[in-house]
């Protein structure tokens, strides 16, 4: 994960948010490019071919970029959202946001028996071409955006990212945790995932696969004790995962951008493939808290340890420059 997107994942304090939102509401056209990328696994110097979304550089890059999850997009609740897509790949690409209602323009093929099959959920950018997508009156919440073309192939190749619309009144601070998987065997020659061939070996949060012995990814977002923190979960993987916040309970308030009539207090939550969830957590003690996949995608290319694990850093109040180790309150340190 590069620095820019890590920062974006951590989200932004209140003052900055205000500025951000005033900009977003006036114009919400976002420009993306679908490009070839390379991702270097934590245990190997040999990069893996990926496809990914990047901020549109205006023309196609001359060489594969360093892959990451697509840039975090933001939108305003109730506004219209437009995404312009440049396709730098060799096959058609499109963008869908599963949680937002919209009018789709499916693309079809006719098979050998004359049966018409949808191969893309909506209109596509041809190789080297562009396409534009608009969602009217978008709803608030956390969403995935991903390729709607041959999703069995293009999504696991890396064509996904997160969209955050509006904010919840309960929480001023938020963190985003985007879960995904990589099966290197399907990437050398990009191939469709099928029931029997899909066997992911890398398990990522925010584009990073923790590997045993390496520093554990920390998500801190300047989150303070005794303040509500919104944890936004998204799963771009093809399998379900079960995030557990070790120690405290969270309050699950929404899925796919839909508020529950009654929130549910849980320390674990099923994060199905393609699902987004929003949870509120009010830490009562500062320190470092672990969040990991209890479906035990806790390995990295077969090596035990590693996988879907992050630390959430909760600062004491008032802020101090460093956090003294505290072994209490469910915190790890």
């Amino acid at each position: 994960m590069n620095r820019t997107s890590l920062l974006k994942c951590l989200r932004i304090p209140v003052l900055l948010l205000v500025a951000f939102f005033s900009v977003a509401s006036s114009s919400s056209a976002l420009n993306l490019a679908a490009v070839e990328g390379r991702w270097t696994p934590p245990d190997s110097a040999v990069p893996i071919t990926m496809w990914g979304f990047i901020p549109d550089p205006g023309s196609c890059p001359g060489a594969p970029v360093a892959w990451n999850v697509g840039p975090l997009q933001t939108g305003t609740s109730g506004a219209n959202l437009t995404i312009n897509l440049r396709n730098c790949l060799s096959e058609p690409v499109s963008i869908v946001i599963p949680g937002q209602n919209t009018i789709l323009t499916p693309q079809t093929i006719t098979d050998g028996q004359g049966r018409v099959r949808v191969r893309a959920f909506t209109n596509e950018a041809a190789p080297g071409g562009t396409a534009s997508y608009t969602w009217n009156n978008i709803k608030a919440g956390t969403f995935l955006y991903q390729s709607g073309s041959n999703p069995a192939k293009q999504v696991h190749m890396g064509l996904y990212g997160s969209l955050v619309v509006g904010k919840y009144s309960e929480a001023t601070k938020d963190v985003l945790l985007l879960f995904s998987e990589i099966d290197p065997a399907l990437h050398g020659t990009p191939a469709s995932a099928t029931p029997l061939n899909y066997k992911p070996k890398y398990f990522l949060i925010n584009g990073k696969a923790y590997s045993s012995g390496q520093p554990i990814p920390v998500v801190n977002g300047n989150t303070q004790v005794n303040k509500n923190l919104l944890i936004r979960f998204a799963n771009a993987g093809l399998m379900s995962h079960t995030p557990v916040l070790q120690g405290p309970h969270m309050t699950i308030i929404a899925e796919d951008g839909n508020r529950y009539p009654y929130a549910r207090k849980q320390y674990s939550v099923l994060l199905a493939a393609g699902k987004t969830l929003d949870a509120i957590w009010r830490p009562v003690k500062s320190g470092t808290y672990a969040l990991y996949d209890r479906s035990l995608s806790l390995s990295s290319n077969g090596a035990p340890g590693g996988g879907m694990l992050v630390y959430l850093d909760i600062k004491p109040f008032p802020w101090v420059l460093f956090t003294a180790p505290i072994t209490s309150g469910g915190a790890i340190r």
Binding site: I216, Q246, G247, T327, I332, R333
Partner: peptide
């Protein structure tokens, strides 16, 4: 112990791990 607020007894502090 998910759902519990765990502390470590000073008599048997153990050694640091990833989750506890």
């Amino acid at each position: 112990f998910p759902g519990q607020q765990v502390t470590i007894a000073s008599a048997d502090p153990g050694v640091p791990g990833i989750l506890t």
